[in-house]
């Protein structure tokens, strides 16, 4: 088995009561169909009502650890970026 024929796939699973898909792990499979089936065996134990996404690892572009600071450091000294200083009008729900 070469890694060319059995590439790596990333698996995202949404549980029955879950709101979003969560990265569950990765696996090798020859194609998406098999990746789905393998993911079902490996990561869901076949509980009903789950949704699985599989993505070829090669299709994922990750942020670079070296650029972590410019990427993620919040600009805390610019309060106008944080829309927190206004009152929520009464009657607006679910905000």
């Amino acid at each position: 088995m070469s890694s060319k024929d059995w590439p790596l796939w990333e698996v995202f699973v949404r549980s029955r009561r879950g709101l979003s898909h969560t990265h569950a792990g990765s696996l090798h499979a020859p194609d998406a169909e098999m990746a789905l089936r393998n993911a079902r065996d490996l990561y869901t134990r076949r509980s009903e009502g789950v949704s699985i996404w599989v993505v070829p690892s090669a299709a994922v572009t990750a942020s670079s650890p070296d650029e972590k600071d410019p990427f993620f450091e919040p600009a805390a000294d610019k309060p106008y970026r944080h829309p927190t200083f206004y009152d929520i009008p009464e009657g607006v729900r679910h905000l």
Partner: peptide
Amino acid sequence: APVLEEELALAN
């Protein structure tokens, strides 16, 4: 089994 994933499937 030929690969680990298939091992799992057959055991399942």
